[in-house]
Each structure stands twice: as structure tokens, then as C-alpha cells.
Design a protein around this nucleic acid. Sequence first.
DNA 1: GACTAATTGAGACACGTGTCTCAAAACAAG
DNA 2: CTTGTTTTGAGACACGTGTCTCAATTAGTC
Lengths: 338, 338
Amino acid sequence: MRPTTKDLAKVAGVSRATVDRVLNGREGVKQKTIDRVNEAIRELGFVRNLSAANLAKKKSYRYVFVLPRSGDLFLQEIMRHVREAETILVDDMMSADIVQLDENDPHGIAAYLGTLTTETVDGVAIMAPESPQVRDAIVRLNERGVRALPFVSNQTLTDNDWVGIDNRAAGATAGTLLGRFLGGVEGNVLIVSETMKSRDSLERRFGFDQVINSQFPRLRALPSLETYGSMDRAEAVIRATASRQKIAAAYILASEARGPLTVLRELGLPGDIVTVAHERTPYTEEALRSGDLDAVISQDAGHLARSAIRKLKAMTDRRSTLLSQEKIRIEILLAANL
Amino acid sequence: MRPTTKDLAKVAGVSRATVDRVLNGREGVKQKTIDRVNEAIRELGFVRNLSAANLAKKKSYRYVFVLPRSGDLFLQEIMRHVREAETILVDDMMSADIVQLDENDPHGIAAYLGTLTTETVDGVAIMAPESPQVRDAIVRLNERGVRALPFVSNQTLTDNDWVGIDNRAAGATAGTLLGRFLGGVEGNVLIVSETMKSRDSLERRFGFDQVINSQFPRLRALPSLETYGSMDRAEAVIRATASRQKIAAAYILASEARGPLTVLRELGLPGDIVTVAHERTPYTEEALRSGDLDAVISQDAGHLARSAIRKLKAMTDRRSTLLSQEKIRIEILLAANL
DNA sequence: GACTAATTGAGACACGTGTCTCAAAACAAG
DNA sequence: CTTGTTTTGAGACACGTGTCTCAATTAGTC
């Protein structure tokens, strides 16, 4: 049987009230007494029974995911997994709500974050582009005791508590795969992004270029084409580029591969060229199976969601998490390992 | 606030004692009363507070991992992660012990499993080669109420409750990668395993051949070389094969890549040929970085360990798990996404 | 040594559920 | 209706921890 606070009290030669004072860091205990209790803790290997403590405190864990409003498939996957996780969380007295806000309105996001207090919520996972307003709001959340966790889209301020992948490495992985699949062929690589204004896109592109330049000098990575999420624009820029030069491969670094890939299909390219995209969605899975995509670089949406929740819980409990579990892997998907 | 059994009792118009009788399926309650309680459960959305229940029952979760005694690096990774998980488990009143048994002694394993009862243990994760003795012992464990979960090495009896990857798909993934990395080159593929007697090896080889035959007809997959875990034998068979024909690629399907890769290195091959191996270990990571390995197909050891624990816990609580979380992915590792 | 302030102890009650016991009520059979 | 059996209720206590209150002890000061 695990030692209890009663055992602690007995071994330390104090009362349960004093043990409680020490365990919960209350005032008015002599250093000597504190030491005696701590020694008893070590001696017995005492570990507080969290469930009993939470029961006594009527504590539950309430978290919120603040996500963009845009309808991107990858985002939908994330939301699906947050909701799925919810069904299990309830057994552990936890909840996870989703709030969708306009990602281009930093004031709006900051305003919402400003309404959150420890009364209503224990922590927030925030997926939003970097902005001074949001950064500020996060700082103030922390001051108020609400845990804030940057989620998927990076925020510079972040010490190291965030959930997501190293996008430079993801780009490098795409580069390696694309280069090797081309097998020494010479040629141009079409690169399509939604916008190069976001940090994620820049980092992916950077990692990609690094690999291409150093390991595949016979490939030429063309300037990034930006679709701004518009199908028409995607069609226009890709057609224009493809008509001017021969394309050997395409790297779609946006998290939404649907538009660009449709255009490539219309141009009849996928059969001849090597195509790499990001993020697993029902759409990219299908494209892998059909051969329109050769590889997908992805971060597991379910893992992202659950990792965020685990991290937030660890933060509220002031515990640490397993580093190896929370490292989000850069997955490579082929038709064979779906 | 979440509804409690008290609320249930009030709404159903019965006493707390009766609510308990229904919730825990005790005898001697009229069907009509049962229905009334169940309706109240639905109406209130009642979910039993597991922590409180476990506290009242003084329940903890004790699990055992039965693992082979052999010193394979991959196994060591698994053990490391089980121990690492232990440090977190303690907060949830769980424990996970490791017992190492001679994997070639099915009687010994069965005998050990025979000693386990619900008195001492709630569940066992078993990594052992298939054998009638072990299969039998597992059946009897289940009869006694001890949850048993085949772990990493498959057991045919398995309904679908087991933890591990689809080794056929893993072999196919290796094949795709190796074929595509070779980029249309013609040649022989060296295949090295520890033994082809194990189900895992056979399945990997099967998946590999399928892909090579259908998608890379210009490659010839040579007969599997078996090392039987001996470095000398590895050296002998690989040298012999390499001297007889030109090798374009090597596929090491054993979970221990050290031996074969050392031999290949001595032969000066890794620079010229494409090499694919299995399982992430400090050794294979290093080989990826140095370029001696081009790709590693792997199953995340930490994920395996934690998934087994989650599944065992779900089994004892008679709950279901998140399918998406428990699906062990076939990871592809390159130097770029370590 | 007396006085005050700081420190500690004893005990009660709560959290939500499980598990008893014993009595009361409802029901069925004759 | 009585009798015996089933079904239900009321209440107590337990699990390990948190949070009070009030009294008792100890330490520090002059």
C-alpha cells in the first residue's frame, strides 16, 4: 500500500495538520519542521494521491482551444481530434472546448483571451499568427494564473513550451524525399504556398532550400507561388509558371493541398513529376493512394491535440511531462504506410 | 457541477443504495427500477467519477510487461520507455513492472503467466513468440480476470486487441522507399534477417517482395540471409553473397541492425548502395546521420509502451480507447526528420 | 519568570463513490 | 388475510486529501 499523509505524519512525528501545511506550502511552519516532513517524504517515497486531492478540492480541468475560423482541412482534423479526446477526458474530470476566432483579427483574439480567468478556465491552447496583441494577452493570462500554450503555429516568445513541429526540419525532410525520389534527374521544382508571410511557410521553405542546395545541386527550386487560399489564383500562377519551363517536381508547402493539386492534375502533371505535400487529410490520403502525391510530410493531428491537453494538465498540476511523448514527430507518409 | 449519485437518486426517485445496486449491476433490483435509474442517467448525462470510485475501492492498476531476455537494442528502448512511463503513472495510481524471460522457453513463460492472479496484477503485456503454451496461458489469464495483451510480437489468436504494427505494411514501406531511392537502377537487393522463423520477419519480407515485384521489376530481391544473432555468421553470409553478385541495395529486416551494418561497412558498401533498416535505436540514428543508412522504418518504442498501458487500463476499466491514438504508426526516419 | 507571538495539534467535516447492515415496504402465493 | 419472499431505504463508515477552528504547546523577549 502506498504511504498516506497519515503515515507521513507518524514518521515525521508531527500532526496531519502540519503535514498539510508543508505539502501545500502554507505559512507559519518552522524550517526545522519542514525539513523533518520532507525527509519523511523521501524516506517513505510518498507521492500525493492526486485523485483524492482533486476530489477533496472539487477540482476539474477546463481547457479551451482557440483556433482560426478558416475552413482548412488540416484544422478540421485537429478539431475532430480535440472533440474525440473530449470523450475520454470526461473520465478524468477534464474538458476541452473549442473557440474559433478570426485569425486575422489580433485584437479580437486578444480581447477574448482577456476575458478568461481562473474562474472559468485552467488553460488555453492558442493557434494564432504572431502579433504583439496576442503575445501580450498571453503574458497577462499567465500572470492571472491561466496557463497558455502556443499551439501548432509558433510564437516567438515561447521558451520551449509549445506544441508543434520544427518546420525547418519538415521542409528539409520534404527536400530530401523529393530529391531522392527524383533520383539524380535535373530540373525545376515548383513550390506552392498559401502565403509566404507566415512563419511556418518561411521555415519550411528555408529547410527545403538548404537540402536542395547542398545535396541536390542539379535541382532548381523556383520562387514560391502564393495562392492566398484562392483557387483561381492558384490556377493562374501555376499555369503561368508551368508554361514557361519544364517542371520535374512540385512541393506544396501549404497546409491545404487541395487547390494546387487540382491544378496540377488539370495540367496532367502528377503522373510524370514527383509531388510532395504537407498534412494528412482525407484528401491527401486519397491522393497518395491514387499516386497523385508521392509523399506527404505530416504532423499527427491527434497527437497534437492530446499533447496540448497533457501539457496543459501538467502545467496546472505543476508537473513535468515525458519529453519523448510530447515531441511531435515529422511523419512521412507514402501509400504503403497509411 | 457534474451530477453525482445523489442527484441520480433524487431524479430517479430511489435511494442511493438502489442507484449503487444498478450502477454496479448487483442482484435483486426490479427491471422497472433499473430502467428508471438508467433514464435518470441519460437525462442528467451522469458519468461516474472514476477517481472517487477508485479511491473508495482502494483500487490501483498493476501491470506487468513480460519481455524477452535477449539484449537487442530495440528491446532496450522499449524497456527504457516503460520505466520512463512509470514515473508518470504513479500519479494515476498505476504501476508497470518488467519481467524478462527466456523467449525460447514457452513452458517457462507459460509457467510464469500461470502464477499471475488478480490478487497481484491487473494485466500483462506479453511479448513472446507464438506457441501453444503461451496461447493457452493467455486464455487462462483472461478466464481468471487478468487482462492479457499481446505486445509487439503478434499472436494469431488475437481478436484485434494487440499493440504493434502491421509488419506486412512495414515491409512494403521499406520496399517503396528502397525502390524509389534507387531511382530506376537495376540490381540485386541484399536482405538480412535474424531468423526467418518469426512471423514478423516473414510478414516484412512478404510485404517487401510484393512491392518490389509489382513496382520495381528491375530489382531482384535475393534470398533472405539469416544471422541467428551471430556476428560471425552475419559476416560470413553477407560476404559470400556480396562476392557472388553486385549489390545495389540492402534491406535489413531484423530489429537489430548493428551486426549486418557493421559487415556492410567493412565491405565499403554503404556509400554506394541504398540501405534500409528497421527500428530506431541510438545506433540506427547515428547511422542515418552518418549516411550509412538511408532510411529506417520504425515503430515508436515510447508509443508502444504507453499504448499498451493505456489499453490495459481501458480493459480493466471496461472502457474503450481512442482508436486513432492506439494505432501504432509505421514511421519513416531520414537524417532530416530525426 | 512572565508575557506575547509563533508554531503545532486534535478534531471535525467535506469531496463522490463503494460496501455494509438492518429495518421497512412492496409484492406474491396460499 | 396471513405468511414468506423480494425489493428498497436509511444510515453508517471507509478511501486519502484539503480546509477549517480552537486550543495547546513552544519559542522568543525583556
